[in-house]
Simulated assay, not measured.
Amino acid sequence: MNPVKVLWRWRNNPLKRPSDVVEAAVLLLVLVLVVIGGPGVGVVTGRAAHDAFRNQRLERYPATAVLVDDAPGRTERPYSDGGNLDTVRAPVRWRDARSTLHRGVTQVEAGRKAGSGVAVWLDGSGRLTQEPLDATGGVVAAALVGVLTAVGWGAVLWGVLHGVRHHLRARRIRQWEREWAEGGPRWHDGRI
């Protein structure tokens, strides 16, 4: 919207309606929240994501698990999701940092024999987890999270502005219809 039109609504004008003032105030508030709040929300969210990725790197550690059973051979997946066709899910066992024995299922190379070692990642509780992002990947992912959050913030505010403007427009139309119902017939008959 044109800033000159927005400022016009604030000046002392006999045609200015209360809904014009409300619409201009909401527009100004949304503009301030987008310009100041958007980057703020993005930075806060990006830092939180960066800290979470860093904590994952600190908490997770590599370990070696032992394959319990022979892994099935290569699977044929005609509608693959782009993943590695040479890996299958198979049961493994491992010991965590406190030497507690655990069992679970993870991706292994197809056709591996029982008893062979499998590289896995464990979390602080000794459970299987995914490999954490490296420092560079964490920074990139955190920046992406921050940018997407800022864009989402702007989209939500645009939606609020659109909703308020739609409501005010519908209210003005109802008001005009009431006024026309009262004065329109008199104007049409030449009584005004």
Score class of each variant (00 low, 15 high):
Ala63Ser: 14
Arg11His: 10
Glu59Ala: 12
Ala119Asp: 13
Lys113Trp: 03
Gly159Met: 02
Tyr61Ser: 08
Arg165Thr: 14
Arg172Val: 04
Arg165Ala: 03
Val35Met: 11
Ala97Val: 10
Val21Tyr: 01
Asp134His: 02
Trp10Leu: 15
Gly104His: 09
Arg47Pro: 08
Gly83Trp: 02
Ala52Val: 12
Val44Gln: 12
Leu31Arg: 00
Arg47Glu: 14
Gln130Lys: 08
Asp81Ala: 07
Asp51Asn: 13
Thr136Pro: 00
Ile36Leu: 14
Val22Leu: 14
Leu101Asp: 03
Leu7Trp: 15
Glu76Ile: 05
Trp10Lys: 02
Arg89Trp: 02
Arg169Tyr: 02
Pro62Arg: 04
Asn13Ala: 09
Arg174Phe: 11
Asp69Met: 06
Val43His: 09
His166Trp: 09
Val68Gln: 08
Pro132Arg: 07
Lys113Asn: 13
Val34Tyr: 03
Thr149Trp: 10
Val120Ala: 08
Ala114Thr: 13
Gly40Gln: 07
Gly126Val: 04
Val164Thr: 03
Pro14Phe: 03
Val120Lys: 10
Asp96Lys: 03
Arg89Thr: 15
Ala155Ile: 06
Thr75Asn: 12
Arg93Glu: 13
Gly46Met: 09
Pro91Tyr: 13
Ala97Asp: 15
Gly115Phe: 12
Asp123Ile: 10
Arg169Asp: 07
Val140Phe: 06
Pro14Asp: 07
Ser116Tyr: 04
Arg9Asp: 05
Thr129Ala: 10
Asn12Met: 04
Val140Met: 05
Gly38Phe: 00
Gly154Cys: 14
Val35Arg: 01
Lys113Gln: 15
Ser19Thr: 08
Gly159Leu: 01
Met1Cys: 06
Ala141Leu: 06
Arg103Gln: 14
Val118Arg: 05
Pro62Thr: 11
Ala155Thr: 08
Gly190Val: 15
Ser19Met: 10
Leu101Ser: 06
Thr149Pro: 00
Ala63Trp: 02
Leu27Phe: 13
Gly73Phe: 02
Ser80Asn: 11
Ser80Trp: 05
Gln130Glu: 14
Trp187Pro: 00
Ala63Tyr: 00
Thr129Met: 07
Ile173Gly: 05
Glu109Thr: 15
Leu58Met: 12
Gln56Thr: 09
Glu131Ile: 00
Leu133Ala: 04
Trp176Phe: 15
Ala170Arg: 12
Gly137Met: 10
Thr64Trp: 00
Gly117Ile: 06
Trp176Arg: 15
His166Ile: 05
Leu157Lys: 01
Val43Asn: 08
Leu58Asn: 11
Thr106Phe: 07
Leu133Ile: 00
Asn12Arg: 09
Glu177Leu: 14
Val147Thr: 11
Arg172Cys: 02
Leu33Lys: 00
Arg112Asp: 08
Arg89Glu: 14
Glu109Gly: 14
His188Val: 10
Gln107Met: 13
Arg77Thr: 15
Arg54His: 10
